[in-house]
Amino acid sequence: MNQPTWYALTGVILFSMGIHAFVIRTHLVRRILAFNIMGSGVFLLLVAIAHRIPGAAPDPVPHALVLTGIVVSVSFTAFGLVLLKKIYAKTGKTALIDPTESTSDQTN
C-alpha cells in the first residue's frame, strides 16, 4: 500500500457512492451531483495511477485526460442544469418520476 494506491482506492469508493446515488435518487439536482462525484472518483483514479513512481515526475498523459474530462463533465453539468430549469419552468417537475410515488424508482 502506497500513496497512489490509497488515493486510487478513494477514487473507486467515490465512484461507487456516485453510481449508487445516481441510480436511486430521483431529484435531478441530486443526480447531477452524483454524476460529479462519479467523475471525481474516476479522475482521482487516473491521477493516482499517473503518480506510481515515487520521486519521479508524474506521467502527464493522464493529467491531460483528466483536464479534458473535467471540462466535458462541466459542460454536461451546465447543460443538464439549464435543461432542468426549463423542465421545471414548463412542467413543474424536478424529477423524471414523481418523488412522491416511490422512493426507490428504477429509472436507471
Binding site: 494506491t5 486510487a8 513512481i53 498523459v61
Partner: peptide
C-alpha cells in the same frame, strides 16, 4: 450490486502494477 462492484474495483486497484512510468 454496488457493493459487489466496489469489491471488484478494490481488488482491481490492489492488483494494478505498483510501479509504472506510463508514457512519461
Amino acid at each position: 450490486l454496488v457493493v459487489l462492484l466496489l469489491g471488484l474495483l478494490f481488488w482491481t486497484v490492489l492488483d494494478l502494477p505498483p510501479q509504472s512510468a506510463g508514457l512519461h
